[in-house]
Simulated scan of single mutants.
Amino acid sequence: MEGARVSLKGWQQAAVALGSALGALMDPRRANLVAALGETTGKPAFFRVLKQMRNSREGRSGHARVISAQVSHAWDLPENTFGSAYARFMGSRNFYPDDRPPV
């Protein structure tokens, strides 16, 4: 999707962030608004995650996409683990990793 990125001025980014935040709060199922909020406010977090991915074998392989087949065992993990919390969170909202389209 070469050329799909649009550069915004600072005030435009703020407007998109504010509108996306309000819309996502009103309807958290709107993945497009959640994504827009993340893209306009998440640059520092993105670079931290990118650095962590580059420092891991899996991250460097390019196969870091979360799919149901890879995380279905999370339901069986001990209560005090991140995986268990992830499974409970996703299950309580009827979210499934495969519902998100590939980036």
Rank of each mutant, 00 (worst) to 15 (best):
M1W: 07
M1K: 05
M1L: 07
M1G: 12
E2G: 12
G3T: 05
G3K: 01
G3N: 03
R5Y: 08
R5V: 09
V6C: 02
V6H: 04
S7E: 11
S7W: 09
L8G: 01
K9Y: 00
W11C: 06
W11N: 09
Q13Y: 01
Q13L: 10
A15T: 13
A15H: 09
V16P: 06
A17C: 07
A17P: 08
L18A: 12
L18Q: 14
G19K: 00
S20C: 06
S20E: 01
S20A: 14
L22R: 02
G23C: 06
A24T: 00
L25N: 01
M26Q: 12
D27P: 11
P28H: 08
R30P: 04
A31I: 03
A31Q: 02
N32T: 07
L33C: 06
V34D: 08
V34K: 03
A35Q: 05
L37D: 02
G38A: 01
E39Q: 12
T40D: 06
G42K: 01
G42V: 02
P44Q: 00
P44F: 00
A45Y: 02
A45L: 11
F46N: 01
F47W: 09
R48E: 13
V49W: 10
V49K: 07
L50A: 12
L50G: 00
K51F: 07
K51A: 11
K51W: 02
K51H: 07
M53C: 05
M53S: 01
M53I: 04
N55D: 14
R57T: 14
G59Q: 04
R60I: 05
G62D: 08
G62F: 05
H63E: 12
A64Q: 06
A64K: 00
A64H: 09
A64W: 07
R65V: 01
R65S: 01
R65L: 05
I67Q: 04
S68H: 10
A69C: 10
A69I: 13
Q70C: 14
Q70K: 15
S72Y: 03
S72Q: 12
H73T: 11
A74Q: 05
W75H: 12
P78Y: 03
P78D: 06
P78K: 01
P78C: 04
T81N: 04
T81G: 06
F82R: 11
G83M: 10
G83S: 08
G83Q: 13
G83W: 08
S84D: 13
S84W: 12
A85N: 11
A85C: 12
Y86M: 14
Y86Q: 09
Y86D: 14
R88D: 15
F89H: 11
F89M: 08
M90C: 09
M90H: 07
R93C: 07
N94K: 15
F95V: 14
P97C: 09
P97F: 02
P97T: 05
D98V: 05
D99A: 11
D99K: 00
R100F: 15
R100C: 15
P101E: 14
V103N: 11
